[in-house]
């Protein structure tokens, strides 16, 4: 049962991801991106991480997508026009992608998962938020702090690149 749902979510996620980059209308493309994010959230639920799923929906489907749609509407992008100039690259791109899929497929066919996975028991997984929160502030405090610096730099960057300093 779980497997069937996994395949449904995975296939829809992949299909909508392909739609995002192949559809020329930016608004439609953004909506397909939303569909893709929702499927990923569903996959998190299947992986017993309801907290991550909720965060995925709040942050990506909610905040990021709304901002993105606003940007699309305000900038009035319309149909993008530079697509047609890149056609001569498509044969090489197809070769590279097919080669990559072949290599990954070969590896997957030969591979086996022998690592001890899922060290958390069902009882612990019920306390999803507590486990995540505790890990963030204890074991993963170093990456957490680095990310806070990264966000600061990103904010400085957004101001520096967009605003004009008043003289």
């Amino acid at each position: 049962m779980e497997l069937i749902f996994f395949y449904i979510f995975a296939i829809v996620a992949l299909a909508s991801a392909i739609a995002v980059i192949s559809i020329r209308n930016p608004v439609h493309s953004a909506i397909f991106l939303m569909v893709c994010f929702l499927q990923v959230a569903a996959l998190f639920v299947l992986l017993r991480s309801p907290f991550l799923a909720a965060v995925q929906i709040f942050v990506y489907v909610g905040a990021v997508m709304v901002l993105f749609l606003f940007a699309v509407l305000i900038l009035d992008l319309g149909r993008e026009r530079f697509g047609e100039y890149l056609h001569h690259q498509s044969p090489i791109a197809i070769i590279v992608v097919v080669g990559l899929i072949f290599v990954i497929g070969l590896g997957l066919a030969r591979g086996k998962l022998d690592a001890p996975l899922g060290k958390y028991t069902e009882a612990e997984l019920v306390k999803n938020i507590e486990v995540t929160g505790e890990l963030l502030y204890t074991k993963y405090v170093f990456p957490f702090e680095v990310i806070s610096l990264l966000l600061l730099v990103a904010m400085v960057g957004a101001i520096v690149l967009v605003m004009k300093e008043r003289k």
């Binding site: 590896g107 997957l108 066919a109 030969r110 591979g111």
Partner: peptide
Amino acid sequence: SGFLAIGLI
């Protein structure tokens, strides 16, 4: 193993 090879590459 195959997983290791993909990961490495």
